[in-house]
Amino acid sequence: MSGGSSLWVQRVFLLAAILAAWEACARLVSDRWISSPVAIAGRLAQWVAGDLWYHLAVTATEIASGLAIGIPAGVLAGMLLGRSVRLAAVFRPFIVLLNSLPIVALTPLLIMWFGLGMQPKIVLVAFVSFLLMFFNSFSGARAVDDELMDSLELMGATASERFFKVVVPSCLTWTIAGLRNALPYALIAAVIGEMMLSRSGLGHLITRSAQQFDMTGIYSALFVLMVFGGLVNEATTLMEDRLLRWRHLETRGG
């Protein structure tokens, strides 16, 4: 692993060099547009001692509540609709149509309906994650191997036993793939909602800073969002590795 650790050393040096160049530019030329790493660090420290946690909690709550509604509903609806040949055929064009619509375009409508609190963001996150999960588990349910269904039916499995032992686990791959989209998208949706109209949350931190032409505030908020986004991504990858061990073996083993 010595190669790996030296790579990390190089990365740290690269990062240090970038930050140093940034700081130098800020001091020697102007920090009007680019702020400076030191100023940003100072602001972050100030936020950590102040209201950062409140805004973080608001965004996290919106995401968690939205996902808690959207994911199960989307997965279930997708699987049930996907397994019914008739319903799938009837609803197909509507689904395709809905799939092509940028859902976040509905944010202003939701704000109009629910005001500027957390509800419109929760509804938006729920809606976005519902649709993403729905499309994925719908495709997953359509792709279930009929021979697996047959083999269980011949063993005497009832329709519900087949659903839970074949359709559900077989959809899991697609569901996880859906989560890979849905989790980052949930963050995006929440931030968009907050940027459009709100008094709290990470998106609000950015718009608040922007309205005051506070560049240090903007960069600090972006940094927080980047870390938050990275954590969401990391969590998704971890969960995927856990749940899809058999799948990775399959793609690796060919």
């Binding site: 980052p184 963050l187 950015i206 903007i218 908020a221 990275g230």
Partner: peptide
């Protein structure tokens, strides 16, 4: 390989947040 983590970090940022900037 050197810059991969930096790109991944930027990728994880919800890009709409860049709009005010």
């Amino acid at each position: 390989r050197l810059v991969a983590p930096f790109i991944a970090a930027l990728y994880g940022l919800p890009k709409v947040a860049l709009l005010p900037l």
